[in-house]
Design a protein around this nucleic acid. Structure first.
Length: 480
RNA sequence: ACGCCCGUAGCUCAGUAGGAUAGAGCACAAGUUUCCUAAACUUGGUGUCGCACGUUCGAAUCGUGUCGGGCGUACCA
């Protein structure tokens, strides 16, 4: 008396248990290369949660691509040149032993000073001019400051298990005169013009971009480079790496700007990377502004999350293991940001971001911990032959349908480059598991056939939760 | 002023290649544990799916307009 459900249970569960951490992957990237650039924070201060959204989306896309079998090269563009970093240097150069955590205040102070005293701006540009024209002393001062920043920023992200393969320094494009050669290329297109002030600008009228003036300014009047020129040079380098997939994660403030870059690339015959845009993180009381200092720093969010996790663990188990507290706290941090679709603003408020109940990272981990607990109590290997026809409860059917839809979910997430698809799926699956768990005992199922069939079912659930965790960068927790 | 994105329950969010009574979490109230972890589960809603008009047998989903929020519109990066 075989039914459609028997077949579904048998096929899906056996597939999952056989394919393990590959279940859900269609291996569409086997033998292919992908290049992803994300984060690329200005080296001026500790990242706030808004910047973290870039890193989290980017990292999840990297994980999705690797899951699909792509060989992924993760790039970080270090913006170690330009007015902002020169200002930071101006603010820091008379101070000794500057550390990463001094930089935010220095940055805020110097911004205030310069806006009060425009004379200081000349010093800023003087620093830049010397830098671009090979002043070794200035150059090493910049590099030293930038490295303090990058080290500080990436160590915070590394703590969240977000890692990079390649750091590309923007200044290298000037030192190697790549920007100079690029200007020659643009000259050949006939679209490079010198404006009345002596700056070199690219005429982009033919691309009909929605802007008032169709010009991309590439240099200052002293012919020092502006960011777009360096960015184009860099982007061309990435395109030349000839990856099958080339992605860049950018805030929505870069939408139009990136179209300008893409147009410039098109002019030279290059295919531009695929941009993934996301909306900003807002505070309940308004916008975040680094210069005003009303930001939520990522590291503060992480610390609070660990503190909350430790507190919850102590409530239940006496003392808290720091690794477990980190896994739970960081899972909450990541999930709070990844659950929202890219094109919506994330409204950050401490209370819901640190909620460990319901639709949250810890909820997912808790489901996994419960499954682990059942297997610890069972203490044996599952038998080879399992009769799946005994599974016919509605809660079991809900679960198997959810499990069966995981591969399609991965495809959607990859097609739309939207991590929230995975986050929401993971919640939906664990919610169904929680309901199943409430109404169906596994170890006391009544008979051996039902018991092992349910064990196989939740083993499959466990595997798919683990696969979601791998994609979201959330650490599994054995017990909690 | 113009361009792009968003607007769904008190709050935070899913759901839009058109399809049946629009779903979660939080908050609030009441319950569930001699039984695999209660960070869980169940029950309780008064949603004009911002508003208006339109296309359609049928619209949260498509079109136009409008209001509100986010972002942008060469010489920051």
């Amino acid at each position: 008396m075989s039914t459609i459900w028997d077949i579904l249970f048998k096929d899906v569960i056996t597939d999952i248990l056989r394919m393990k951490d590959k279940y859900g992957s269609s291996q569409s990237g086997t033998g292919k290369k992908a290049l992803v650039e994300h984060t690329s924070i200005n080296p001026n201060a500790s990242p706030h949660v808004g910047r973290a959204r870039n890193a989290l989306i980017g990292d999840t896309i990297v994980r999705l691509l690797r899951f699909e079998g792509y060989s992924v090269d993760v790039h970080y563009f270090v913006n170690d040149i330009g007015k902002q970093i020169a200002m930071l240097l101006l603010g820091a150069k008379d101070k000794s032993n500057v550390t990463f955590h001094d930089l935010l205040q220095i940055y805020i102070d110097i911004n205030n000073k310069v806006s009060e005293n425009p004379e200081l701006e000349k010093e800023v540009f003087d620093l830049l001019y010397k830098l671009e024209n090979g002043d070794e002393n200035i150059r090493s001062m910049f590099r030293k400051l930038v490295n303090i920043c990058i080290e500080g920023q990436t160590s915070i992200l590394a703590e969240l298990d977000i890692k990079y393969d390649t750091f590309d320094y923007e200044s290298d494009y000037i030192y190697s005169n790549t920007t100079g050669k690029l200007l020659e290329e643009f000259k050949k297109t006939g679209k490079l013009e010198e404006d009345e002030e002596g700056r070199l600008v690219l005429n982009q009228a033919e691309y009909n971009l929605p802007m008032k003036a169709p010009y991309l300014v590439l240099t200052r009047k002293d012919k020092t480079s502006l960011y777009p020129l360096r960015d184009i040079a860099y982007t061309i380098d990435k395109v030349k790496a000839d990856a099958d997939v080339n992605i860049i994660v950018l805030g929505e403030d870069q939408k139009l700007y990136f179209k300008q870059i893409a147009s410039a690339l098109d002019l030279l015959g290059y295919k531009s990377p695929t941009p993934v845009h996301y909306s900003f993180v807002l505070l309940a009381e308004g916008k975040m502004a680094t210069r005003k200092g009303n930001v939520v720093l990522l590291e503060d969010f992480m610390k609070e999350a660990i503190a909350k996790a430790s507190e919850e663990i102590e409530k239940r188990h006496g003392d808290a293991d720091i690794n477990t507290a980190k896994a739970i706290g960081y899972g909450a941090v990541k999930y709070a940001i990844l659950r929202v679709s890219n094109d919506r603003n994330v409204i950050f408020d401490w209370e819901s971001a640190l909620s460990f109940e319901g639709d949250s990272g810890p909820y997912l981990q808790y489901s996994l911990a419960r499954i682990n607990s059942i297997f610890r109590n069972y203490g044996k290997e599952l038998p080879e032959d399992i009769d799946f026809s005994v599974l016919q409860d509605n809660h079991e059917i809900d679960l198997i349908l959810e499990l069966a839809s995981f591969p399609a979910t991965v495809k959607t997430a990859l097609k739309e480059l939207s991590p929230h698809v995975i986050a929401n799926y993971a919640y939906g699956l664990t919610k169904k598991f929680s309901v199943f768990y409430r109404y169906n005992s596994v170890l006391n199922a009544g008979n051996e056939n039902l018991k092992v069939a349910r064990l196989a079912l939740i083993a499959a659930v466990r595997q798919v939760i683990l696969n979601c965790f791998e994609l979201l960068g959330i650490q599994p927790v054995e017990e909690m």
